[in-house]
């Protein structure tokens, strides 16, 4: 599978959570997601509007990603991060 051309986001730019590189921090702006269970799960895990997320670790095979938020770490797949809009801080 060929990787999509990666958009590099810099401070202040908006994009998807999946576009971030390791060490970048961003604030969550909104969700768009039609899978109700997934959406609810993300909310329950603390991914709500305004929360700050940092990309901590990336699995050796490139996916999933370990993010840090609300004082803990969460593993999540890139594909599920695509539905989360963010702004880099």
């Amino acid at each position: 599978m060929k990787k999509n051309k990666k958009v590099l986001l810099t401070k202040g730019q908006e994009g998807h959570l999946s576009d971030l590189r390791r060490g970048q921090k961003a604030v969550v702006l909104d969700f768009h997601n039609d899978n109700a269970a997934l959406r609810r799960r993300l909310l329950d895990m603390g991914i709500t509007k305004g929360v700050v997320i940092e990309i901590k670790k990336i699995a050796p095979l490139g996916d999933p990603i370990d993010i840090s938020l609300r004082g803990y770490e969460l593993c999540i797949r890139k594909i599920d991060m695509e539905g989360i809009d963010i702004k880099v801080i």
Binding site: N35, R41, M45, K57, L74, I76, R77
Partner: peptide, 9 residues
């Protein structure tokens, strides 16, 4: 393909 993996580390 609708599986997810959301887990605490």
């Amino acid at each position: 393909e609708h599986t997810t993996f959301i887990s605490e580390l």
